[in-house]
């Protein structure tokens, strides 16, 4: 009880304003100064690092999706005359071993990297949420069976599993998103299940059941909204993980075939030419990938502050 000295809830009516006592039902959103979302926004923006992360992420998205519209390069044809050129006026970041422009390559590589990250984050989170919520809410034997399955798949080292699957299927971007999601949803499911179990015994859920709410109503009205916070945080971190996993798969040469590319594959090329001194083929891609993963992780930390603050305030 170290909080004995902390002040009361700050938002109660202050005693000096009895004359303003309104007698009508507040008629607009303005009357609700501390909605959950507002509170979340305030907490998030207080975390300066997370804000920077958000800006970096937006810049990287612009770079990858808007960049090619501004900076035109031919990313399909190989051009052996131009291979391995150092940075110059015509090729701002030099060229690849196939003679393609490196900067342009980074742009389209960023596109697939971001697409895979977001795709996996969304897919895995959605599936994990549904799976975990069902297991947690059902309880009993259903829960045991569902979660043992998750335990089992979680103990297969994920990269081995992904490489195995990638070796079986024909790899394209969509397939890769599916494959990565297949390993990524597991930890989300475990998390959501745990949260659901604890929510299920919370008094407000008991109260809801107490006036006859059906399971469907309870899940829709209480469980899901209260899960949202943790799930969003987890989903954000999933995006970072997926980008790293995608890079690893691409590094192992199991990514989509050229002329498609991604940052992992570009780094891989750079590593192969490391001893030839073609630094421009390695470091820009390396910096970009670290930047995006860092940005997403930092955003995730910021969001988790938001969720924790909400839990504290309850």
């Amino acid at each position: 009880m170290t909080t004995q000295g902390s002040p009361q809830m700050p938002t109660q009516g202050t005693p000096q304003a009895p004359t303003q006592l309104p007698t009508v039902v507040a008629d607009s959103e303005v009357a609700t100064p501390t909605s959950v979302w507002r509170l979340a926004m305030i907490t998030f923006t207080e975390n300066r690092l997370a804000l920077i992360g958000l800006i970096v992420l937006v810049l990287l998205i612009l770079f990858s999706f808007v960049g090619p519209l501004v900076y035109h390069t031919n990313q399909v044809a190989t051009n052996l005359i131009n291979e391995n050129l150092p940075p110059s006026g015509s090729h701002l970041l030099g060229t690849t071993p196939e003679g393609r422009d490196e900067l342009g390559r980074l742009m389209i590589g960023g596109r697939s990297t971001i697409e895979v990250g977001l795709g996996v984050g969304l897919l895995a989170t959605t599936f994990g949420l549904v799976y975990g919520a069902i297991a947690g809410f059902a309880g009993g034997i259903v829960d045991v069976v569902m979660m043992r399955f998750v335990d089992a798949l979680l103990s297969i080292p994920y990269l081995f599993f992904v490489v195995l699957l990638a070796a079986i299927v024909q790899v394209n971007l969509l397939m890769l998103i599916l494959v990565l999601s297949m390993v990524s949803w597991l930890s989300t499911a475990r998390l959501v299940r745990g949260e659901t179990l604890s929510l299920r015994t919370r008094d407000f859920v008991v109260a809801s059941q107490g006036f006859g709410a059906r399971a469907r109503q309870v899940i829709a009205r209480h469980i899901t909204p209260n899960l949202l916070g943790v799930v969003v945080v987890n989903g954000t971190l999933k995006v970072a993980d997926a980008i790293l996993a995608f890079a690893s798969v691409a590094y192992l040469g199991l990514g989509p075939a050229p002329p498609a590319t991604n940052w992992g594959e570009l780094i891989s090329t750079g590593i192969n030419n490391l001893f030839d001194g073609y630094w421009w083929q390695l470091w820009p891609a390396g910096v970009l990938i670290v930047a995006i993963v860092l940005a997403v992780n930092v955003i995730g930390d910021g969001l988790s502050d938001v969720v924790e603050v909400r839990l504290q305030k309850r």
Partner: peptide
């Protein structure tokens, strides 16, 4: 039949008005 709870913080859904 209705219940009244001990912990006034836990018995109201924090996400609802």
């Amino acid at each position: 039949l209705q219940l009244m709870f001990q912990d006034p913080y836990a018995s109201l859904d924090p996400r609802m008005r």
